[in-house]
Amino acid sequence: MADLSEGGRGQLLLVTALVLAVVFVSLSVVVNAAIYSENIASRQDPSGTDALQGRHETAVMAVDLLASVNRENNTDNATLGEGLRGGLDETGEFVRLERAKRGSLTNTTLQTSSQNNGTIVYQNESRELTTADQSDATPGNWTVVRNVNRRAGGNGTRAFTMNLTSISGDLRILVVDYGASDVWGLTVSGNVGAGNDITVEVDSPVSSTKNCTKTLDSGHAEIDVTGGTVAGEPCDALRGSYRFAHGVGDRYNISVENGDQATGNYSLVIRNTTAWKKAANDSDFQLNYTKASGGAPYARAAVYNTTVVYEYRSSELVYETKIRVAPGEPDD
């Protein structure tokens, strides 16, 4: 009797121990899962960030490269294209080596078919904003470029910057619709000098007039017309519905008024290769620019925009994107 009872109790304890063991094992599995979930919560997927960083580096270098090629080469568009391709091979190699250290591959290629040739108009010496020839009755009132055509959904002028050293009147930059009467006008007034105020006023065909006044901290006034800054600070009169050429049609002229009442240098890139030339039957316009030697301003072949294809491959990510390179181009 006693033996049987002791045997029963033994079985009960055995089964209990077994069940409890299973419970503890299950509990350990659950605890392990909890630890694992905390572990994966702290994981990061670096590929996406790395790819974006590489893309950004490529874009920044391509922008600098385009500006450099436009500045240094003055022959023709084919030479500019060659310069871009060569430069991109070298800068792309830098991005590729940096990524290779982290176990990923990149490739950057220039999409030559998407290259748009244009013209860079610039004056790199401080003089009045007049024609090169100055033989006209009013050399300060002249058309800088004509019949600039916008790209679809965008603009046709980029990187328009002025650096003025003096203003004696109201300098006006006008963007005039080629076929209609819409005019976008920019008026710069004030006294250039450290501590002085300079005012930029914009008349937009779709909005009322808006102006902004900035205090200069040096003896020159930097106005980024397409970038929307004055003396390095954002200017609301050059942004939003007042931005460069907003409200003007698909084709427009850019002209200067009272250019003889301001001194400084400037630069802009337009989307056309012939917009700086006047019509064939009007040779005076060609005197606006210096052909070979002599004084500014100059009009030379430039690349308006190009496209770089950026590819990124790692064990987690395959990414291919196009980077449109047109630094300083405002939205439509």
Partner: peptide, 27 residues
Amino acid sequence: EQADRLVRAGDTEELRLNHTAPAEIAQ
């Protein structure tokens, strides 16, 4: 959201992101 950022960065031609996750959760 990472893939979205990559797409929005520009004119995306191709994007394939492999995301690793456990096949089972607490068995």
